[in-house]
Simulated scan of single mutants.
Amino acid sequence: MGLILANNELQQAHLYIRNKSHLALNHMAIPQLSYTFSENDRVNLSGASLSMLKQ
């Protein structure tokens, strides 16, 4: 499981979430984010993290 909390300051990231992984982003926004998910992954987004899906 990967957990990224709000006190981390990332400006850019490409996240590869694969092989039944679990990613949790808690109240964190990454301005330049791209991502790749497989169909068996689980992602939890909360707060500012939800706005990243609009990109």
Rank of each mutant, 00 (worst) to 15 (best):
L53W: 12
S51W: 05
G47L: 05
L53N: 04
Q11D: 15
A48E: 02
L50A: 14
Q12G: 10
N8I: 05
G2L: 12
N19F: 04
S38H: 06
N26F: 14
S49W: 05
N26T: 15
L33F: 07
L25E: 11
H27M: 00
L5C: 09
Q32S: 05
Q55L: 14
P31G: 09
Q55C: 04
S46P: 11
S38L: 15
M28Q: 06
V43E: 07
M1L: 06
M52D: 13
S38P: 13
F37A: 01
R18D: 12
H22P: 08
K54T: 02
Q32W: 14
V43L: 09
Q55R: 10
N26W: 09
H14S: 13
R42M: 11
L53S: 12
N7I: 01
N7Q: 03
A24Y: 05
Q11R: 07
A29Y: 12
A6C: 05
P31Q: 00
A24K: 06
L10F: 13
M1W: 02
L45D: 03
H14A: 04
D41I: 01
R18P: 01
E39Q: 11
V43I: 15
Q32P: 03
L10Q: 08
L45E: 08
E9A: 10
M28K: 02
N8F: 03
L15N: 06
M52K: 08
D41L: 03
S46T: 14
S21C: 13
N26L: 02
H27G: 01
S49R: 00
K54C: 07
A29F: 15
H27L: 01
S49Y: 05
H14R: 09
R42G: 12
L10V: 09
G2I: 11
L5W: 10
N44F: 09
N40R: 11
L3F: 13
A29L: 08
Q55N: 15
H22L: 02
Q32I: 15
P31N: 04
N26K: 03
E9P: 01
K54F: 01
F37N: 07
F37E: 01
S38M: 02
E9L: 12
A24F: 00
K54S: 06
M52V: 10
N8W: 04
M28Y: 13
N40C: 04
Q12R: 11
I4E: 00
N44S: 06
A6H: 09
Q11W: 14
M1S: 10
I30V: 14
S51G: 10
I30D: 15
V43H: 04
N26V: 10
D41C: 11
L10Y: 06
H14Y: 03
M28N: 09
P31D: 03
L50N: 06
L10E: 09
Y35I: 12
G2M: 00
N19W: 02
M28C: 14
D41K: 00
A48K: 09
N26Y: 01
R18H: 03
G2H: 06
L15K: 00
R18I: 07
S51F: 07
V43D: 12
A6W: 06
K20R: 07
I4D: 00
G2Q: 02
R18M: 01
T36N: 07
N8A: 13
G47W: 06
L25W: 05
N19M: 08
E39G: 12
A6S: 14
V43Y: 11
